[in-house]
Simulated scan of single mutants.
Amino acid sequence: MLLLIPGPVQTRPETRAAMAQDIAPWDLDFRAVYAAIRERVRAIAGGREGEHATLPLQGCGHFIMEAAIRTFVPPGGKLLIPQNGAYADRAVRLAGEAGRQVVALPGPDTRPVTAEEIAAALAADPAISHVAMIHNETGSGIVNDPAVIGPAVRAAGRRLILDSVSAFGALPFSLADHPEVDVVVFTSGKCLEGLPGIGFAVARIDRVEASAGNAGSWSFDLSDVYQHALKAGWGSFRFTPAVQALAAFNVALDLYEQEGGQPARHARYRENARVFHEGVQALGLTPYLEWRHQGPVIVTVHQPADPNFALQPFVDALKRRGVLISNFWNTKVPTFRVGCIGAVTPEDMRGALAAMGEALEELGVRRRAPA
């Protein structure tokens, strides 16, 4: 089965094979593996030894994002969230339910937020301490670029929390270039092509130390993760982790380096997206985004207006042809989305397009323009 969703992604056999073992997470041999993973991840993030630390947490992207908000934004504190997609909507809820004040900056999910919009919102409310931004919106596929937004946050003397869950390892980013970033968060099962189960935060140590006592949660306190590492060692966990996922992630990092790291992975994903974006148009379908706003992670497509089209039968028809896509959408109008990340190639995307054409024919979908 060709898995074309934005995570968990299709993985290499070597990565999956690493899961097939029983591991004691506190064994000294595995402590060394875990400590090395933290250093490798910090390097990918462009962090510096002594200035940044890798703070893993069990669970999905929402868990690590909530932990970042709770840790770095004080209780009752105020943060700005550019709300131009479904995952920004979720960040608004995470922050609100954590007792933080949210200033939402509404925008369409068809283009990135601009530096001018951020600067104006920060100037209008001096009480805002942080901006929490989704790097790649996996509902639509747009990219909010920290190279554009970061300088506006820095110029205003505020801090940035970057949710790079579906972008990290593919889209260019370096903490060394962004002193305004308190933390960048991501997970094991997206562009680094590991298995799901581990969230990662790479954070400024000075900001972590200054945030002790903010979280209001033992489980979601990144400052506590840091203090535990100082006391028990960087190969130690607070609570039992998804240890097999970590073993697989270590292999995935080897494969990432062998491919050529971020530039090579971005180039492959970008070509995957280009092939698919052009290919759906050749089928008579309409991409949700203009190419100039299209990121490399996911291509979202308007559902055809033909009454014979319904998403689940379309997904089922594709699955019968060996291609699996998401059976839901996160946009304001009906769409379907196809992941371009994971251990897939442009040739795989061409195969998926052929299957898509057959599925549309099987369903009798002739009118393929959107409603």
Rank of each mutant, 00 (worst) to 15 (best):
T110N: 11
A67V: 06
L324H: 09
F328D: 15
A32S: 13
K190N: 11
G339Y: 10
V297S: 15
P25I: 05
K190Q: 11
V153M: 13
V92H: 05
D29H: 10
V225T: 13
A305R: 15
G213P: 01
P75S: 01
R238E: 11
E358K: 13
I44H: 04
D221E: 06
P108N: 13
L318N: 06
E347G: 04
G351A: 06
L105F: 10
D254K: 04
V301M: 06
A282E: 10
M356H: 06
A210Q: 11
A98I: 00
G284Q: 07
V344M: 05
M133H: 00
R93L: 15
A176K: 13
V333E: 15
M65F: 11
L353C: 07
T300C: 09
R366W: 03
A229W: 03
T286R: 07
F276N: 02
D254E: 11
L222M: 00
L79G: 00
S211T: 03
E49L: 03
Q83H: 14
V41A: 05
D182N: 01
G279H: 05
V184A: 04
A104D: 09
R12G: 04
L94G: 01
E209I: 02
Q244H: 07
V275I: 13
Q281P: 03
R270Y: 14
I198S: 05
F239N: 14
A201L: 06
T138G: 08
A282G: 06
A201Y: 04
S326Q: 12
A120G: 03
Q83V: 11
A210T: 08
V103E: 15
Q10V: 03
G139V: 14
S236C: 13
I5H: 07
I134A: 11
P75D: 03
T71R: 00
S217A: 07
I5A: 12
A267R: 05
A282K: 11
S166N: 13
V113Y: 04
D348T: 01
V297R: 08
M19G: 02
A45F: 01
L192S: 08
M133T: 08
A35P: 00
E180R: 05
G194S: 10
F200L: 11
L175Q: 10
A36E: 14
A32T: 05
A282F: 02
P8L: 02
V344F: 03
L230G: 07
G357L: 06
A242V: 11
K319A: 14
C60I: 14
E116T: 05
G279D: 01
L318E: 01
G7V: 02
P126S: 07
D316Q: 15
L55P: 00
S219I: 14
V299H: 13
P151A: 10
P6L: 02
R90Y: 12
I5V: 14
D316T: 12
Q281N: 04
R90Q: 12
N250Q: 04
P196V: 14
L4H: 02
N84K: 09
P13V: 04
I198D: 02
S188T: 07
S174A: 15
L363K: 06
V165D: 08
D348L: 01
S326H: 09
N214W: 00
E257K: 07
A155Q: 15
A343R: 10
G189D: 14
G197F: 03
R366S: 09
R350F: 02
T335K: 10
I5C: 07
N330K: 15
T138A: 11
T335S: 08
E362L: 06
R274E: 13
G322K: 09
F276R: 11
S219P: 03
H302G: 09
F276I: 05
P112V: 08
P263L: 12
